[in-house]
Design a protein around this nucleic acid. Structure first.
Lengths: 242, 242
DNA sequence: TCGTCAAACTGGTCTATACCAGATGAGCGA
DNA sequence: TCGCTCATCTGGTATAGACCAGTTTGACGA
């Protein structure tokens, strides 16, 4: 029942456990995507309880050093994907170029109309027809984001009939002759909650990054509005301006 | 000792508590910067324990809806500051323009030299002289970021003698005739750990956003490298490109 | 009136334990 | 050989209680 958190110059126990594990990851003893020992075993190794061990694991998760797979265990995070939202239209090419394996799944495609929120984001009028496309994307077999894409149905007639598991950017260019020009990007860190958390297969409250991107063609006409929900440890964003 | 987590169609208790509190925030019953009832009181209100209550609070914190002030309590988060890293050089002007009150504190100024890490980021040679400036910045009295600024000491002689509590951008322009042009920005979500966590006054592991910005003058010469550690709920980033 | 100081209160850390629900794999049967 | 079943393993949720270390506040004394 006794605890001894602040012996002179000593960190709390859960931070010492964090540092031990972090050291093993940094030194390469534990490599990306390897599983950590189970919480019960770690607790025993460090002479503590599961609750305290989970505090340490939560720290490492928040730092992006480890991630969890529902009821399967904790794993060492792979390197972050470098993502340039102002450049990259093709997720697949970007992932491949970094030596990783991409995968895209279309979850559903729905014809709907712009609600007030979407109207203010895009410049459409409330009620204008849009196609909502929901996709999940993976890197090396791990789902890292889900996205909602709102397409200007007036500008892109018949787009719902195409295959969305390939690059949307190439589809727009080849089938509609559209070159995306102006982009307005907005992003902030937040937790993933349902339904996005379930779609990615993580527990509600997992740290994430919310990114929206509004794209127009050369004439300033609205083409697509993209809403992305990323796992927070999966990406590093780069922007260059001159 | 009995629990009843998954009564048909029912969320786990800690998520129900989260939703209750979130509802009060969204409806405006709880307004920005007001304190929530203490954990012990919330636990009693919802007929549960502190541990479970803290799970609910941690969820809301991860979503950016509430924040904690060390041993003072939990508070409703104010709106995020809109931050345009490609535009804004002046934190103060930006904060003021959004109706908030900025404050900047210089923590310390050190003459040092470029280490290998900094050299690769800036293009300097290892050993080149730099001035390291550490600052803390607040919005409405709440510290929201600390930053390490590495200044090219060769390019900006005597810069360590100026007052750094004002806009660095204005200082560079007025005293050195420097107009920042090229910028390379990199950012990713991660946890704040010591020493940054202590400097902001939050517990280690609090969610944050790490932002670096490398600025050059019109001729491509390195001017400053800025490393910012933000609280994750304090900002929303916007980037526009054409 | 005003400053001081201790009690009360807050979150921070930790133990010990229990049961639930999904993932996994070994072994059995067709 | 190939499924299928079920025990076992994993993390997920939850209770009950304890002590620690800053913050706040209010009573008291100068």
């Amino acid at each position: 029942m006794q605890q001894q958190a602040f012996v002179e110059g000593t960190l709390p126990l859960y931070l010492r456990v964090r540092d031990q594990l972090a050291g093993q990851i940094d030194k390469g003893v534990l490599t990306p995507n390897t599983r950590l020992p189970s919480e019960r075993i770690l607790a025993e190794e460090y002479g503590t309880t599961r609750v305290t061990t989970r505090l340490a694991l939560a720290q490492l998760e928040a730092e992006g050093k480890i991630y969890r797979s529902n009821r399967r265990g904790w794993f060492v995070s792979p390197p972050r994907l470098i993502y340039k939202p102002t450049h990259d239209y093709s997720f697949s090419d970007n992932v491949t170029a970094q030596g990783r394996v991409p995968e895209t799944e279309t979850l559903d495609v729905t014809a709907t109309e712009a609600n007030p929120w979407l109207a203010t984001k895009t410049g459409l009028a409330v009620g204008d027809p849009v196609i909502l496309l929901r996709r999940r994307r993976q890197i090396d077999g791990r789902p890292v984001l889900v996205e909602n894409i709102y397409l200007n149905a007036t500008r892109l007639p018949g787009i719902e009939t195409y295959d969305f598991n390939r690059s949307l950017w190439k589809l727009l260019r080849e089938q509609y002759g559209v070159e995306l020009k102006g982009k307005r990007i907005e992003m902030y860190p937040t937790a993933l909650v349902d339904p996005q958390a379930s779609a990615i297969g993580v527990t509600a409250g997992t740290a994430g990054l919310y990114v929206t991107r509004c794209s127009q063609d050369g004439q300033g006409g609205f083409i697509e509005f993209d809403e992305e929900f990323w796992l927070h440890d999966a990406l590093s964003i780069q922007v260059e301006v001159s």
